[in-house]
Amino acid sequence: MAGEAQTVTGYIQHHLQNLVYGKLPAGYTREDGTLLSDGTWTIAQSSQEAADMGFWALHLDTLGWSIGLGLVFCLLFARAARRASSVVPTGFQSFVELIVDFIDRIVKDTFPYRNTMVAPMALTIFVWVFLMNFMDLIPVDWLPLAAAQISGNEHAFFKVVPTTDPNATLGMALAVFILMIFFSIKEKGLLGWIKELTLHPFHSGKWYVDIFLIPFNFLLEAVSLIAKPVSLGLRLFGNLYAGEMIFILIAIVFGTGVLGFIGASLMHMGWAIFHILVITLQAFVFMVLSVVYMSMAHDREEEHKHDQ
């Protein structure tokens, strides 16, 4: 717990606030009472300030941890790849190969087209998302308190699980969405892709009927298209956010006497063990869905069926 004076609500809110760097407008009264004479790029001191910074702000903790963990993944795996030899694998190399083989099999099963990018993408998603989710298992106060100690600011915001930030999960989903559209257009051509969006699922074969079906088709297809990245990003965010929330609530119970401490310890352990499953599963689901979406982007079957 971060101090006696803090209320439970304040504690929770503090834990759910990112470290935001953004621009505050001129004439803005800050949290500590100072009045800004002109627009300033600064770190938000409160949730209100963070909200007032609008869209053009960066979550330094989210980006920092996600890039850091991504680099950990890249460097470890690149090192394993560089040292790899086709003789008997040992230690870390066999671990890496186990994961690579696992991903390769899943991608081969779900993605029957020729695209060398999909399997590496799946590997990146799985390991990276897993690492980001894994931050959830580190006790909720350790890293924020360490950050507060290092920065000297007792109220410094620091959220260590990037996947509990919708920006991170939706950002990844957006990237998957961009790749989907890119490969759709690359595989089917722009016209083919537009046809897919407008002449499906309702298709009569007579142009004067089809013209009237286009708006309905497009509405349905657009919704299902947009729903893919949104559900992809929100699913991961929701699961991890809920998990983080429960960890925070359990952390509050720690401060409520001896009985509460023992109870909270058991609860924390139970939830953490359960969460090991959740973080792996969510990383896996995100990866499999991304591969499935790529597969749908490459799929021309639908078109041919309706051409007949």
Binding site: A57, C74, A78, V96, V100, A119, P120, N167, L170, A175
Partner: peptide
């Protein structure tokens, strides 16, 4: 709040995917 972080994360994601595609996956496989 939805912020620029979203775009930053997308770019990071694509960068890592590209790195993995070029330097990790082919030699291992």
């Amino acid at each position: 709040n939805i912020t620029m972080t979203l775009i930053g994360q997308s770019i990071t994601f694509l960068a890592f995917v590209w790195f993995c595609w070029k330097f990790v996956w082919p030699p291992l496989l």
